[in-house]
Nucleic acid binder design. Structure first.
Lengths: 161, 161
DNA sequence: TGTTAATATGTGCATATGCACATTATAATC
DNA sequence: GATTATAATGTGCATATGCACATATTAACA
């Protein structure tokens, strides 16, 4: 409502009161949509989504617990579960036997290792294309900015589960 | 090439001339997840997703065609359609009568105008919180970087529809 | 040792995202 | 004026995202 407590600060950002584009989150989302689209133009020829590629690159011949992978990727645990479904169905990833019946330990299959190398090459093409389009220096700067933002914008409620 | 477990990490940090930079798309996605989470912590108290907020801020008392809104937000047309469903069901947005039976023209209802102002205030709180956490200067820089990336990474196949 | 707490994961629900396809209405053309 | 092209939108499908809740398993401990 008429939030009087914030009127003082309102002057600080009054320049963009009417402009929703000032929203950093909105910009980030928009860029992510374009960026995802860009990468997936390349990845489409091997039938991978960018997210699936990310998951695939974080699985190896060494069994890793699902939660470890999720933490490393900083993906929602349940999102990872469903993302793995496709990779498992394609025979690239499988469950390694373990001692703890709760824990899922995931490994690449032989065909998964082969496919991962192929996917990596396709990603390289995409990344090179991105650097060609935006300029290598700018991409490096952007990477650094994203990295810095990530280091400062810590995830909220870090796993209260 | 041997798809060793370290290959992914090697690519992540590679910076020599022969290797592409780290996956910019992956970083962007990760930051977007955190950013979205950050904003939605605030927006949750009025029951809005960040995406819904963006849509709401791009609808006014002046009827606008769905496609115009989608183009301006650079959102997929069909995503917008479904995002509008919730806004319409809540009585904030409605269809304005038009001459072309194909075209949907959307307007804010009176209650929608009121709610939009409220949502805007909540967003301001979120934006302020973001600036407080990351530092105002850095947010400004980040915004500029995102904007620059957006201006250079044009959408592929720019609406062949 | 039996009960309770903590762990690891899965499922249902709602929305987001984009593609392919279907539908309806207007415009164009002959 | 009937047929065809174009335009605007909606729907189905697959996946992404995150939250709330449910389940199963191991650890803790009284």
């Amino acid at each position: 409502m008429t939030a009087s407590p914030s009127e003082a600060r309102a002057a600080d950002t009054a320049s963009n009161d009417e402009s929703p584009l000032a929203c950093t989150g909105g910009r980030a989302r928009k860029l992510t949509r374009r960026m995802t689209s860009f990468y997936e133009q390349h990845l489409r020829r091997i039938g991978l989504k960018l997210s699936q590629y990310s998951v695939l690159m974080n699985i190896s011949a060494e069994p890793q617990a699902l939660q470890q992978i999720a933490a490393h990727l900083e993906m929602d645990r349940t999102t990872l579960t469903r993302s793995l479904t496709a990779l498992v169905q394609n025979g690239w990833v499988t469950d390694a036997p373990g001692t703890d019946a709760r824990q899922r330990r995931l490994v690449l299959t032989p065909s998964g290792q082969k496919f991962r190398a192929e996917a990596h090459q396709v990603w390289r093409d995409a990344q090179w294309a991105l650097e060609a389009q935006l300029g290598r220096d700018f991409v490096a700067t952007l990477n650094a900015q994203l990295e810095r933002a990530l280091s400062q914008l810590k995830p909220a409620l870090p796993e209260e589960n």
